[in-house]
Design a protein around this nucleic acid. Structure first.
Lengths: 116, 116
DNA sequence: ATTATCGCTACCTAATTAGTAGCAACTCTC
DNA sequence: GAGAGTTGCTACTAATTAGGTAGCGATAAT
């Protein structure tokens, strides 16, 4: 294992080609990675605040995800705690539409609304 | 087992609230889920063809993902094999921009281009 | 009948995630 | 400046998921 942070241009978990899109999918396809970006989109959060927002996500996993996301240039530490980098915000702007979509999806599946 | 397919409105892996967005992130945040949607966006593929596109992904994992994605209404079986449902295509349209973004990201990280 | 492909299950090992405890550093109060 | 509280994090273990391989039953062509 060269590195366990998926980087474009390198083989990643499940992908030997290193195609950027596959590296990105690997990075985002890890538990809570998308959730963390989602939570940070509203502003900086301390480690423990982030843990609370992510339903008491264990510190070991949170720390791993934060290291990966930092190494990938999506998250960094500021005065207020962890926050999205410019690139992270840019990625979030692509992610944002998923919020509304997921609600349509919920209705289509006939699932009760979980609230916000 | 109630169900290990994350459905909006129900608690999912790591999320007890069942918020649609969290259920969606759980579903998509499993290995190869995003990759499978990506591959199917170009048209229907048989089980084994899909396996090839996903770099010989093991049948056990592929089958698990396909069941989850089917149960979530994103994928179904047609004459030609597995394909995206209308809802799956709709989701893909949100996913598509990630392709271009990942290439910018690759450059920003100074990674060599993985081709394609 | 034989061979080949296809979709998939069974089984096992490796890796990842989840959960809990607690420490070192820092701040605040007194 | 001792004690209490908070923060960021590491260490360790248990549970869950992913990955890999073998191969079966079904269908189709030879």
């Amino acid at each position: 294992m060269t590195s366990d942070v998926p980087k474009p241009g390198q083989p990643v978990r499940g992908s030997k080609t290193g195609k950027p899109i596959m590296a990105l999918f690997d990075l985002l396809g890890r538990s809570w990675a998308l959730g963390i970006l989602w939570q940070l989109s509203e502003g900086a959060l301390t480690f423990r605040a982030l843990q609370d927002r992510c339903e008491q996500l264990s510190p070991s996993v949170l720390n791993r995800r934060l290291k990966e996301l930092s190494a990938s240039g999506l998250v960094c530490r500021g005065d207020e705690g962890y926050e999205l980098t410019a690139m992270g915000q840019d990625l979030f702007s692509l992610l944002q539409p998923f919020g509304g979509w997921s609600e349509q999806w919920a209705e289509a599946l006939g699932a009760p609304d979980g609230g916000d």
